[in-house]
């Protein structure tokens, strides 16, 4: 049996399409974890990145935090959180958020720093307030890079959210963890395929968001 057969068998089994362990439920859970973790990471990473990037201060500290964040093993962190906090969503969310903040923070900072200083100078010179300079002049130009930071954070969350299953939570990781435990490779492969598909969809969503929100003048299409 090859992988394609596993996939075919997994998806054509109607039992996999319903109930609390059905694909729609698991997919919805997975998406929910991803969105929550991404929202929290963005709520922290975006403002800090925008502000440090705009003022140009704190770049060094930022790089340090980011490196430290990247070095933390997500799985280890989750186990540690589980031990410390017990059962709950927090031990799952914390590693995902910690994983997602560095790409968001660092790219946002870099994106803001790489904005051409001339229009910014012109904007100040014509009497624009600082917040307007940030949101109306710098952000629209920095947006493609900022979105790419969010995108890589989202992709990482999608693939890492599978670990939630290890601490009895749902999501697509359920199939992989359970499948491995039950030696049901059809399930393992099915779950992995779903995770990969979700990652691709995420890419597509960010591509569309870029088309919609980035000015043609910046995109140069």
């Amino acid at each position: 049996m090859n992988v394609l057969n596993y996939i075919d068998a997994f998806f054509s089994d109607s039992a996999h399409w319903q109930g609390y362990d059905g694909i729609p439920t698991r997919l919805a859970e997975h998406i929910q974890y991803t969105l929550e973790a991404l929202a929290i990471a963005a709520a922290v990473g975006l403002p800090v990145g925008l502000l440090t990037g705009h003022t140009g201060r704190g770049g060094n500290i930022l790089a340090l935090i980011a490196t430290a964040g990247r070095a933390l093993p997500s799985f280890g962190l989750m186990v540690l959180m589980f031990v410390l906090l017990g059962l709950g969503l927090a031990p799952v969310m914390i590693p995902l958020v910690v994983l997602a903040i560095p790409p968001i923070l660092v790219t946002t900072y870099e994106a803001m720093r790489s904005v051409d200083p001339a229009p910014v100078d012109a904007a100040r010179g014509m009497g624009m307030a600082e917040t307007e300079v940030l949101f109306r002049v710098e952000l629209p130009v920095a947006l493609p890079l900022i979105l790419s930071g969010l995108r890589s954070a989202a992709i990482q969350i999608v693939s890492t959210a599978t670990i939630a299953a290890y601490v009895s939570f749902g999501g697509l990781g359920r199939y992989i963890v359970d499948g491995l435990y039950q030696r049901d490779y059809e399930k393992v492969v099915g779950g992995a395929t779903l995770v990969a598909a979700l990652a691709l969809v995420t890419l597509g969503v960010f591509w569309a968001a870029g088309r919609l929100s980035v000015s043609r003048g910046v995109r140069r299409a």
Binding site: M126, S215, G217, V218
Partner: peptide, 23 residues
């Protein structure tokens, strides 16, 4: 106020410094 002052003076720089995301 600094921004009132600046709005009463046009400011033109080398290479224009146009906002590339605006028409």
């Amino acid at each position: 106020p600094v921004n009132t002052l600046r709005r009463s003076m046009g400011y033109v720089i080398q290479n224009a410094g146009l906002f590339q995301h605006r028409t």
